[in-house]
Every structure is written in C-alpha cells, then in structure tokens.
C-alpha cells in the first residue's frame, strides 16, 4: 500500500448557497505528481485553497499524514510577490519564517534560473520569471507537498517547457509530492503520474497515467469467434494490451505495433467491429466531461 500524504474527506465549500465544491474525497500518495484537470471555474483553485486553509470549508476534513500545513509550498493562481522588492528580498521574507539560511535562497534561485537576477526588482520580471520565482518561494523550507495551481498560465512555449522540466526535476531530486492543476491538458499529460477530473465542483473521475495512455491510444474491437484464442495467444506473447468483453475483444494499439496487429487480425479472418482513433488528452477530457454532463442530467 502506498503512503498517503494528504487525505480529504467529504470536503464541501458553499458560497452564498452556491455549492462550488461538492462532497469531495481524495487521496494523494507520497512522491507522486497528481494532475488536477478541469476547465476554468471547475473548482480546481477552490480545492487547492481549501487544502492550504486559504479558504475555510463549509464541511469536511483535510488530513495531512506525516506532515503539517507548515510543510506545504504553494503557487496559487497568480504569483504573489512584492513587486517593489528584489527577488532575493521576496525569498528572504519567507526564509525568515521557515528559518532557512541565505545559501538555500541562492540555491533555489539557481535551481529556477534566477540567481543572476536576484537583486533585480520583481516589477522588472517577465511573467515566466515571476512564475519561476514563485516556485522557488514555494520550495523554501523543504516542503513535503507542493501545490501548483495553473503554473504555466500565460507563459510562452519556452516558459511552459522550463516550468515542466523544473517540476519533473523537483519531484525526482527532492522527492516532493506535487499536486498540479491546469487547463492546458497536454502539459499535465507530460508530467503527471495520476489524474483527477473535476467539473462544476465535482470530482468525477480519477485515472492513472498508464490507464489514461491506454484510453487515449488507438483501439480495435474485434468480434469473438473460434479464432479468438489464437489472437489472444499472440497478443500475450507480444505483451500487448487488450480487454476481453462479453462478445468482443478490445485491443490497444501502440504506434509501433499497429501494422503487426492488423495483419494478424486479417490472417485470422477476425471481424473488426469498431475502431477508435488515437485521442489526445484534450479529446479524452471532452469525451468524459460530456459523459459526466449527460450522467448528471
């Protein structure tokens, strides 16, 4: 069993009778990068703010395991910085609270590539630099859990790539658990190990990276007949993914084995019932959101 770092039980938030987060249950495991996916106004920021205590829940509990609220580093919405102070001074303010030395400030500024600009006023920084400084701020005091809300919002492709690489490095080198939210799904797809889908304040689905990749890849559904055992034997031998359903077998096609499988199906004279083309994370998101909407309706 994996170690939990954060557990959320029946968390609910209501603003003037409007429920913005419905009874939510959630578990975050130590060391993972969890991607929170949802469109603008879905409840991602509210969820993050509730975890940090920036807003108070109407009901429910936020439980930290082997850590406390002091062990959270966060970047919520826009970077919150003193624009009239230097990058170093902004770091120093939090460093006083977490009692870290100047070396750690310099080390973190170096990690985010801002060591050379540490004496520059933040008002002169680009948005990407501010985002990176906010991440450095969040990392001060060696947090065990990092909450990043839309960290690539408003960044150019180079800035997005820099932040993405930084997040992966932080997770690997410092073993920090990361909860990251974004509506730029392709970015989350590249960094997260697990995904949660949220819409209208509802946590409606959770999926692992492996399962998501399977769901997004091309699928061929063939009808079961007398030759199906031969097909399954071949698939097992080639370590290919498939699912046996009542009358059909769903085969997950990866780019490097598509021709091989199609020729095998052809050779065994199996009937192809349906084919689903490869989907992007966006397509998958739209599909399940639509399904969720229909379900709620």
């Amino acid at each position: 069993m994996e170690d939990k770092i954060l557990e959320i039980k029946d968390l609910k938030k209501t603003y003037r009778k409007r429920e913005v987060l419905h009874n939510t249950n959630f578990i975050l495991n130590t060391g993972e990068i969890y991607g929170l996916i949802g469109r603008n106004g879905a409840g991602k920021t509210t969820f993050m703010k509730l975890i940090t205590g920036l807003i108070k829940p109407t009901s429910g509990k936020v439980i930290f395991h082997n850590c406390s609220t002091n062990d959270i580093g966060l970047l919520i919405e826009n970077p919150g910085l003193y624009l009239n102070l230097s990058a170093y001074d902004n770091m120093k303010i939090k460093a006083i609270l977490v009692e870290t030395n100047n070396n750690e400030i310099i080390e973190l500024l170096e990690l985010v590539g801002l060591k050379e600009c540490r004496k520059m006023k933040v008002s002169k920084f680009s948005l990407g630099m501010k985002q990176r400084l906010s991440i450095a701020l969040a990392l001060l005091g060696n947090p065990k859990l990092l909450l990043l809300d839309e960290p690539v919002n408003g960044l150019d492709p180079q800035g997005i790539s820099e932040i993405r690489n930084l997040i992966i490095r932080i997770n690997k080198e410092r073993n920090i658990t990361i909860l990251i939210s974004s509506h730029i799904l392709s970015e989350l797809g590249l960094v997260c190990s697990r995904f949660g889908f949220i819409d209208n304040g509802n946590f409606f689905m959770e999926i692992s990276r492996e399962k998501l990749e399977l769901n997004c890849c091309k699928q061929i559904i063939v009808l079961k007949d007398e030759n199906i055992d031969k097909l399954i034997e071949c698939l097992n031998r080639a370590r290919m993914m498939y699912e046996i359903e009542e009358n059909e077998v769903k085969i997950y096609i990866k780019e490097n084995n598509e021709i091989k499988i199609v020729s095998l199906i052809d050779k065994l004279s199996l009937n192809i019932v349906n084919t689903f083309e490869k989907k992007s994370l966006e397509d998958y998101y739209f599909k399940i959101t639509e399904r969720n909407l229909r379900h709620n309706a």
Partner: peptide
Amino acid sequence: CEAFGNGYIKNIYNFSEQ
C-alpha cells in the same frame, strides 16, 4: 493590505505561526 493586494499572503498563510 499590501500582502493581500499583491497576493504574498498566500505564500505564507499556511504557516501556523503566521
């Protein structure tokens, strides 16, 4: 108000001492 205006309070609000 300054820390509320520029949002810096968010970075440190979770500290129990704060």
